[in-house]
Amino acid sequence: MSSLAVSNEHAASASTGRVIQPGWVRIVHWINAVAMILMIMSGWQIYNASPLFNFTFSRSITLGGWLGGALLWHFAAMWLLMVNGLVYLVLGFVTGRFRRKLLPITPGGVISDTKAALSFKLSHDDLTKYNYVQKLLYAGIIIVGVFIVLSGLSIWKPVQLQWLTALFGGYDAARYVHFICMALIVAFLVVHVALAVLVPKSLRAMIIGR
């Protein structure tokens, strides 16, 4: 099914029938959305047990009710996030989607598209092609996603995976990396959702594919 969708993506019949987001992308996107929200909300509750900074998250936006409940959610949703993320990475490379959609990223392209975006002149006529700002953000958030999983593993297993924890500069440093990655993902999410609302056909493409 997914290979059909991928070949559809290539089909140059530029009019109505064209698939913008193939089926596998839509499936992993929405699974990821659920997993991310569960991880972030339970993560905030876990953070509250031993805050790194001079603030805590309101209980109304956390998941789990208390540390033990939040940990249960966090260590359950992590499987959803990791398995789904692996599927996404493998298919992204194997189908050539990453190379086709996200590369190349040139500094000149990013600067001119950022200027165009800020003056509301950026075109969204062809949703199958990402502009340079999108390329940069989508490629960047994939890397942040990899980092949040690896820093999470190094907090979870600082003895068994101590080589990984050491790469992050030790247990305490890994906690900060994990937090910063969360903050970047939340910032991405805010912009991502705002733009999807501003360009509703992009949201429609992520739901029904076209």
Binding site: I37, L38, G65, W66, L67, G68, G69, A70
Partner: peptide, 23 residues
């Protein structure tokens, strides 16, 4: 740490978000 020890409560906290239905 545990403002509410009843485990029911932490579950409903999650349930209210519709997460349970999805999962």
């Amino acid at each position: 740490l545990m403002p509410d020890l009843t485990r029911r409560r932490f579950i409903t906290g999650g349930a209210s978000f519709g997460a349970l239905t999805l999962l």
